[in-house]
Design a protein around this nucleic acid. Structure first.
Lengths: 351, 351
DNA sequence: CTGAAAGCGCTTACAG
DNA sequence: CTGAAAGCGCTTACAG
């Protein structure tokens, strides 16, 4: 069975197959299917024949070919710099993906997930972030974005939107982040409103941008409210009862803890509190700069703030689609508000 | 401004630029950069000049062009017939996706996620499952697969692998499913081994293949062990204490419950048991045909079996890659074993 | 109104 | 050992 002797070709149908079936040229097929002005201007009967043939063959344009000449595959790239679906779900970007998918579906885009990290690419294809070019543009999530590669893509005009704040390339990289500064300040403001006049801010040593933002927010909140605060850097190991009592003796009535992956500082502080026989919010108030992950059911809900991950994903996808539409002013850097979530662990200070 | 109108002549270097700089032909550049036998056979001096020029220009191959030529896009499609990332994570196909991504990454494939259902497609491009053709092949997960469209794709030789058993198209559709029949029979066997001689099998009325398989497995287990069993169809509403006592009076010492999304029957039975002051496994044994979803911490672990979702995803992806490699015999229908998981709710019958 | 042709950036026979 | 050429499946001027 040698192909090419008139027998119907197996495999994916091409425009040439449609052309043959409809009795027109391949270029005419392209015109009709592209649905642009020129295509719409063609004779209605021609259009119908072509469309019918395309439907019968189940035609779908080859993304690589289309991309080579123009640049629109209705393919929204998504890259996470690590496994998109880690085995441990809690470390996944699931909530962001929910938003990205919602918006992509609404806009008629499919999602192209670039698997693996750049380093682990086996088949020596396109190196590094260059692979992303197969998509029309790409949503980036996660850390460890290599700056030089980002610059290269941006220089070439490849549309990119980051989920999360990323100023590593100045203002050139559009992103949708969370306003951790304002959110942290709001938590301090809530404590001040309740009557607290001195708080302790416990933070794990970390240079991540999200951590630095939270600290800045706490300091901002202290300035705005005029209350006192002490910043404590610790991995949780030294948060014993003695230290706790020391702070209380100094007049601290509220504790603010950074939200980290391990939640080490939070766990350490909370166990010291309960070991000392103290309760929240009667004896002291406790707030988290974020949300508690996997809180055991029955545990009191911590006061903190919610990161609008789904909305961030959605907005990032929308921004990318706008960029693709050539809307030059669409690429912005924006921060979404993280609403304060008052829980059960904060209240007026004991007197 | 306004590029992308036809001349994507950006600053991005092409092989032709390297060729000019190195004083060779574009084809020679391709040969050198592809690092294959022919390329390695070229004069060392030529190779070095080319490589040096490529480095100086910061060349990276255009993935679209490369993929156009090689006629595959290294794109593994994934379609779920609904949102891939539902807001409620528990209804998601996450564990399957973990496996698919693992295997795809290992094989150097990226994942193309088709968003939305066929019905909700706005931009009227390729209708229905035809969209899948954008990928080299596709992994299908979930229910509601339209049979005629599947047949169409299979007829055209489009590689498809289903995650989960699907015999709607006979043996033509390759799949990787879970062996619910054997797993259910194993649960019955475990109860028989413990000494039970009569059990009640509670199942919600459902025509889903996974449900029917489980029932078949229970019947098989009963035949294999020679013990008695009663099949009860109920949505849980009538599983009151009276009924429970009736079964016990009839000599039943063990209960086997189907695992469903809602777990309605399980919840109903368990609350009747505890309302009657009975305990597992002292007074009766309780087993689930599957795993309990979102069990409250502290609850005794139910005896049941584990569905190897991640492995199913991995195997499906691998099977698809084999199909793409033209391995004709690679498309099979296979069922993976679901290992018995002995928990805290089964033991020897009370006497 | 439609077709013939050029070309996107590559790979791969095939000549010299 | 290297170059010239064909072609992957498309889009888009440009002719008729």
């Amino acid at each position: 069975m040698s192909p090419g002797n008139g027998a119907p070709r197996s495999g994916r149908p091409r425009q040439a197959d449609i052309a043959r079936l409809a009795g027109v040229s391949q270029a005419t097929v392209s015109l009709v299917l592209s649905n642009n002005e020129v295509g719409m201007a063609l004779a209605q009967s021609t259009r119908e024949r072509v469309l019918e043939a395309a439907r019968r063959l189940g035609y779908v344009a080859d993304p690589a070919a289309r991309r080579l000449v123009s640049r629109n595959n209705r393919l929204l790239g998504v890259h996470t710099f690590m496994a998109t679906f880690p085995v441990d779900f809690r470390n996944s970007y699931y909530p962001f993906l929910v938003g990205v998918e919602e918006e992509a579906a609404a806009q008629g885009y499919d999602m192209l997930l670039f698997t693996g990290s750049e380093a682990t690419r086996p088949h020596g294809e396109a190196a590094g972030l260059n692979r992303l070019r197969l998509a029309d543009g790409c949503v980036l999530i996660g850390r460890h974005a290599p700056k030089d590669e980002l610059v290269r893509l941006l220089d070439d005009g490849f549309p990119l939107v980051y989920v999360g704040r990323n100023d590593s390339v100045g203002t050139r990289l559009p992103y949708v982040g969370a306003d951790y500064v304002r959110a942290a300040a709001d938590v301090v403001a809530e404590l001040a409103r309740l009557g607290h006049r001195r708080l302790v801010y416990v933070r794990e040593p970390d240079q991540a941008i999200a951590s630095l933002d939270r600290e800045e927010g706490v300091r901002l909140g202290l300035r705005e409210t005029g209350i006192d605060g002490e910043v404590v850097l610790t991995d949780g190991g030294d948060l014993d009862q003695a230290r706790l009592h020391g702070w209380l003796a100094d007049g601290a009535t509220a504790f603010v803890v950074e939200a980290t992956d391990t939640q080490a500082a939070l766990h350490a502080l909370r166990s010291s509190v309960s070991a000392a026989g103290l309760r929240c919010p009667q004896d002291l108030s406790l707030a988290l700069l974020g949300e508690e992950v996997n809180a055991p059911s029955g545990t009191p809900v911590l006061t903190g703030f919610a990161v609008p991950r789904r909305e961030m994903g959605r907005r990032a996808a929308r921004m990318l689609v706008e960029l693709l539409a050539g809307d030059g002013g669409a690429g912005r850097q924006e921060l979404l508000a993280c609403p304060l979530a008052v829980g059960d662990t904060t209240g007026p200070p004991a007197r």
